[in-house]
């Protein structure tokens, strides 16, 4: 799809009128196009106004209770992961240096899937990675198959910090996965690299002894369709 055609998808995206493939393509484009990000923000505000044009009967009073009860359950289910004995203080390591470079240059891979817009996502990613770097108990693990480091904080929040990763091929995206056992893979990030330093915050905790893998996909998928192009193992 040509660039002009891609820009034209902004309204359809704001109206949620793209199919999965078009959506992935547009989201990959968003990461590279500040103009579209700005336009999308205003279009999403307009689209949300359309919610007001329809009649709004009251939902059942039980809905409020159900939502609040479920929120309470989810809150109490937050799992504390055990700390590991051999902790590599990351603040003095190569990972920290890479992250500082990445922060200062503003080179952040936006995690795009299911986000309202990726600039927000990128900023969130920055905050998360900065918090992660500030954790004196964070651990660093080498990446196999690419230049980079997996950083995992004591709360098991993780980020991939990658050097010189080529941009995803035209029409493709990178997806990062976390896995406890190397079998069941859970999607943790969707990103397109831009060369230089790429920082990918992971949306899921990295289980102790688990691994992180990155695959190349045509669109956001629920499980990897091919072999990882690189991995980082915490075992």
């Amino acid at each position: 799809m040509g660039q002009d055609a891609i820009h034209d998808l902004t309204a359809a995206y704001a109206l949620n009128a793209l199919d999965a493939h078009e959506e992935a393509e547009y989201e990959a484009h968003l990461g590279r196009c500040a103009g579209c990000r700005g336009e999308l923000a205003s279009f999403q505000t307009t689209a949300a106004s359309l919610a007001y044009a329809v009649d709004a009967p009251a939902p059942s009073p039980a809905l409020r209770d159900r939502i609040l009860a479920q929120a309470k359950v989810e809150r109490s289910n937050l799992i504390e992961f055990p700390r590991r004995r051999w902790l590599v203080p990351v603040a003095s390591g190569a990972a920290a240096a890479a992250a500082v470079v990445a922060v200062s240059l503003g080179l952040w891979a936006a995690s795009l899937s299911s986000s309202l817009d990726d600039e927000r996502e990128a900023r969130y990613g920055q905050e998360r990675v900065l918090a992660l770097m500030a954790d004196p108990a964070a651990e660093a693990f080498p990446v196999n198959g690419a230049q980079g480091t997996l950083v995992v904080a004591s709360g098991r929040e993780g980020a991939l910090i990658l050097q010189n990763l080529k941009a995803a091929p035209e029409g493709k995206i990178y997806e990062a996965w976390v896995s406890r056992d190397g079998k069941e893979m859970l999607r943790a990030a969707t990103f397109v690299a831009r060369g230089g330093a790429t920082v990918v915050p992971l949306s899921r905790p990295v289980p102790a002894g688990g691994l992180v893998a990155v695959t190349v996909e045509d669109e956001p998928v629920d499980e990897p369709t091919g072999k990882p192009i690189f991995t980082a193992d915490t075992a």
Binding site: D8, A11, A12, S42, F43, T46, A47, L50
Partner: peptide, 12 residues
């Protein structure tokens, strides 16, 4: 696409 784009822009 044009109808959606132009329409949404006008609404905005």
């Amino acid at each position: 696409k044009s109808r959606m784009f132009n329409g949404l822009a006008r609404l905005r």
